[in-house]
Design a protein around this nucleic acid. Sequence first.
DNA 1: ACCCAGTATTCCGTATACAGCACTCAAAAA
DNA 2: TTTTTGAGTGCTGTATACGGAATACTGGGT
Lengths: 236, 236
Amino acid sequence: MPSRSIPRSPIPDPLASQPSPSFAISRLTVAEQVLAEIRRRILHGEIPEQLPLPETPFAESLGVSRVPVREALLALEHEGLLQPGPRNTLRVRPLTATDWRQITGVRLRLEPLAAELAAASPAPNAIREMRQNIAAFDAAESPEELAQLDVQFHALLCAAAQQPWLQAAWTPLRSPFEALLVRSFRAYVAATSLPESKTSTADHSRIVDAIESGNAPLAARLVSQHIQRWEEWNAA
Amino acid sequence: MPSRSIPRSPIPDPLASQPSPSFAISRLTVAEQVLAEIRRRILHGEIPEQLPLPETPFAESLGVSRVPVREALLALEHEGLLQPGPRNTLRVRPLTATDWRQITGVRLRLEPLAAELAAASPAPNAIREMRQNIAAFDAAESPEELAQLDVQFHALLCAAAQQPWLQAAWTPLRSPFEALLVRSFRAYVAATSLPESKTSTADHSRIVDAIESGNAPLAARLVSQHIQRWEEWNAA
DNA sequence: ACCCAGTATTCCGTATACAGCACTCAAAAA
DNA sequence: TTTTTGAGTGCTGTATACGGAATACTGGGT
């Protein structure tokens, strides 16, 4: 659900407990909040696959009407996290190792191109945002955070290329990729010590350096290698 | 709006005049019909760019409620045919030569990959459907038909690869590409004689032949050349 | 003439209402 | 026992209703 502008805040929240740091009023649509919540649950694996997701009970359990829920479910279907099931139902899309491989295959075509273009003429704040992302990744601890920031880095890379259609092509891969990445990080964090799960940081830094220096071929090559490295250890 | 299953037909249509060849009942949602109609208007250039598209008058003019219209407009935004405008409005997205170039750039990364994969293991009916498409293209006359069938060919190519995520990445380019292609075909058909505007047919046939024979590198190369050839004359 | 308050209008986001389909299950018919 | 039928239930698709926000309009003041 692409948020257009700022509607009113339709949630009373009589306490409004938080003093709202730096006065950042949320002004989020109910539909947007519902979308974020359901997406979070799916990404975190809290909803079993193949369970029908009827909008009526969902709306009741969330305390809102069916309309925003319907909108959110439709958006999640577009995102690739839900798929139509047998009897006119929506279900969580099962994601397997095959999906991982295919997503990687497409990313290997798109992201090196993004790196090239970004090196040629990066978007205004792209470099800074990517460095901030790397710092946040370094500070993150939970697998969910790590996955979210890792995906965000690659999204920033695509945004840096300043090519709306390249971004449009990459975007459908984003959420499913994040869902798979959450599982990877969980397995990795459980198996190894936390710092080791951050080898991405070095790769990411080198990529940003190459882009900043305008070395397009190097940037593309580094991105390609980075994606392939992940692919390898995920296969193991 | 991804059509899930078959709801009832909510349109009385008391006559049902057509004897419905081979008894193919339509059973399309109101929302789906609205979506198809608005999409057609946009692709045919019947809606001026930058004109706000409020759902309320739209619904009244179409004789349906706002709900299906809202759903359709949201879907069209996802498709890339609409974009958010100044005062919380949706407008037809202006598409320029720059968009054409960028879309081509992404297609050059995705479609050769699709050709490779299709040549390696094509989807069951893919070859037949592509040949049918070529025949239909040969028989088509209007620029709108030609554009629709040309885009469909490339969509079938991506589908033939049997890689959902490759298709997911390609899909966001589809409608904007078709919108641009309609203009191209109109200009081309106006400038030259109709048969000449069908040089694509030969290219398409060779691509299908290469896929059928399992020659992946050739298929990829042909697709790449085909896309670049179009790019060149469109630039002229 | 311009500016500005206050009102009217328009449209969106959300809730609620309603009809129709699809499935469930139990009782009736074979 | 197996099959059929009918009521009952749950969910969807669509329409309508309502409150709030933003814009457009109008009239009085300077």
